[in-house]
Design a protein around this nucleic acid. Structure first.
Lengths: 301, 301
DNA sequence: GGAGTTCCATAGGCAAATACTATAGTACAT
DNA sequence: ATGTACTATAGTATTTGCCTATGGAACTCC
């Protein structure tokens, strides 16, 4: 079954004549006859009654006609609307994000994104940096959001913002005696029991790095693989921790307090990562801008 | 844009590789490359990013993918379901009927028909016998319901029933003095003012024929082109008339009485008429059976 | 009723399009 | 740096669709 065969079939059905249909299709009559015949052979049923004067649909032809029209219409629609579809960002976009960013940045970003690209379907994958990089290299993802630096030859990144890491402590912690300035220094944590994120997360590694850099040997009592678990331990008074500011923003519990680091505050850099060599995607570009805006808003407040 | 190009495109998008897609499509890799290239040219946009290791969709490719899948699905559905569609009588059937039958027989017949062929679309044309015959000859109609005899070389008919013609008179007419037997003879009409249907209708001609046959010279006061108009004149006492029994059945007015003709009652024969040389249509056959059933029911009551 | 016209099917040739083999070029992996 | 995997290109073979010519059947007109 081929598209031109369907076209010829519909033309013949509408014209009631193979000759006239051939004229309208601007081909010779035998060509149209031949293609109709082929179509009948592939479908296994005669489509027309031939009778000297013109042709008339059989039951099979009557059944095929609306289907053929629909298929041809879909093809025409594709031709007509593909440019618009591209413009409007139709189709599936696969986005990756690391677990310490995804829940805090993606919902807001994708909400704004969807208002701009209502026809867009987004597929989100939440995974560790290294897995996301592999997925990008394998073209399974169109873009990923993660924290730089990243190490991968096939991948290129674009910094879209940064955010401070802050100290989280149980409410009523002796770390913040005065209400005037709730800041701390990292060395204030030396005496504190500490809950920390597993170093499988890049954030866990970054935090370890900051502490080592500043000569802080932490008293780690617990190491978990989810930020949500870290926060729950903190709430229960098991210790303090260091978490990204976006996690602090999202926290509504009265049982935890967040303290900024006064001197040399640690930060992490957030980047949009793409497979090198791929054409720019309007939607990916725009998603990066949206996330940059959100991070900038965070920084201002 | 061709179906095999869409197939190759979808295969390449799903495989993420032109080589693997070619394997799955059981063609050589350069052939698939070439067809993708042609598709890109006709659409005016690159569909893939090529990068040594596999291919990845561009914005245009992402937009095309769902449309291509839909088209291919429609084609597959057509292959898979055409036989079922034929069986179930899908598609448009064009039916003709003369005006003195259509309103009395078609609604009931098509109601039953639709319960048997719910996917069927029916197009009804109401016209005079000669026009219907032309339409049949031109294959504009699949079948027509009319009163035999019909004169046309290209057409064949099948009698599906017959019905008596009855006398209609204003309520309180002196024609039926006794309640015991409401029948009349045609010669009873001799003294009556008469309303009659125009002879453009075959029924009008048939009635004239009957009267002439029986030596009845009518006193025609009015000649109209619609049975409904005839009946209205009768209601107002302008005269009596002769109408088909199916019109009597449909009449609920208390202002008219219907009287059967006792001796040599006139009847008309009702037939299913088709273009000669066309393959039998299950739906047309069944429609004829349904109408025959209805006419038989009429006769019994 | 017969000649002419119209229409569809078949046959054979031609051109275009598609598929194949071979190979070059590029990116990635070891 | 070499080898492997993948895509693109070139050239050839084959298929396929379209064309012209023609035959046969049906309808029309005289």
């Amino acid at each position: 079954m081929e598209l031109h065969q369907l076209r010829y079939f519909v033309a013949a059905a509408e014209a009631g004549s193979i000759s006239r249909a051939a004229q309208r299709c601007r081909i010779a009559q035998p060509s149209l006859s031949q293609q109709i015949k082929k179509l009948e052979e592939t479908l296994g049923a005669p489509l027309f009654d031939r009778m000297g004067r013109g042709v008339a649909l059989t039951d099979a032809g009557r059944a095929l006609l609306p289907r053929a029209r629909r298929i041809l219409q879909e093809v025409q629609d594709t031709r007509d609307n593909l440019d618009t579809d591209i413009e409007r960002g139709s189709g599936v976009l696969s986005i990756g994000a690391i677990p310490t960013i995804a829940p805090y940045l993606l919902p807001e970003a994708l909400a704004r994104f969807r208002t701009e690209f209502p026809d867009s379907t987004v597929s989100v994958r939440e995974d560790l940096t290294e897995h996301l990089l592999e997925a990008l290299a394998d073209n399974e993802l169109d873009v990923a959001i993660m924290s730089t630096p990243v190490e991968h030859e096939l991948v290129e990144h674009e910094v879209i913002g940064s955010e401070p890491l802050v100290v989280v402590a149980p409410a009523g912690t002796p770390l913040c005696p005065t209400g005037a300035d709730p800041g701390v220094t990292l060395s204030d944590l030396r005496s504190q029991p500490t809950v920390t994120l597993h170093e499988m997360h890049c954030l866990g590694q970054q935090i370890s790095g900051f502490c080592a850099d500043r000569g802080l040997a932490r008293n780690i009592t617990c190491r978990t693989t989810q930020l949500a678990t870290v926060l729950e331990f903190v709430r229960l008074g098991m210790g303090v921790s260091i978490v990204p500011a976006m996690a602090a923003r999202a926290d509504t519990s009265p049982d935890r307090v967040y303290l900024r680091v006064k001197t040399r505050p640690p930060t992490r850099e957030i980047s949009l990562v793409r497979r090198a060599g791929r054409a720019r995607s309007r939607r990916v570009d725009r998603l990066g801008e949206i996330m940059a805006e959100i991070l900038a808003e965070h920084e201002r407040t």
